[in-house]
Amino acid sequence: MNWLLTHLDEVGGLMVTHAVLSVIPLVIGLVVAVPLGWLAWRYRLLRTPLVAGTGLLYTIPSLALFILMPLVLGTGILDPLNVVVALSVYTVALLVRTVADGLASVPDEVLQAATAMGIGPLRRFFGVQLPLAVPVIAAGLRVAAVSNVSIVSVAALLGIAQLGSLFTDGFARNFLDPIIVGIVACMVLALALDLAILAVSRAVTPWLRVGSPA
């Protein structure tokens, strides 16, 4: 506890970095996964290659992916961009399937009713199908957010500063306090992101909160 009190500024700074490194890939991943997920949903033939292909990327261990990133991006090994891109890859891998499942979970009758009312394909997608798929997509996004927070900490082994640095510092000095503080801070951050996504998801799907007349 004492250790935390004397290092509040440092922990706070690392937490902000950690949050940024976790959230940016989440946004990038979502933006990329929606069109890919739509393709996988719309064209059955594409589903298997898309889901399996992104799934293959998902099998690469994070430390390995961080290290291999400079080969693709031409960055330095210490560049936080490696972490951002690698996590974006994981997020896409996780969300493509979720988005496809989410879009498929919208009842066909609803889409046909929309078409019958003369709503065009683009408006139908953004105005009807995507909103109705939000609960499923949000659930996938929550999983991605929580695992992103955990994965970011691994980058400390390469010297990229964030909450994971507390683990490496503590281990090097055989000192538990910073490690415990780091673990708790990571879990708090994961919980906060999880709740934030849940809150946004609820806010944009008010129809789900209305109890059905019993």
Partner: peptide
Amino acid sequence: RSVPTLGL
């Protein structure tokens, strides 16, 4: 899932 592996 929220427990950071490395820390653990």
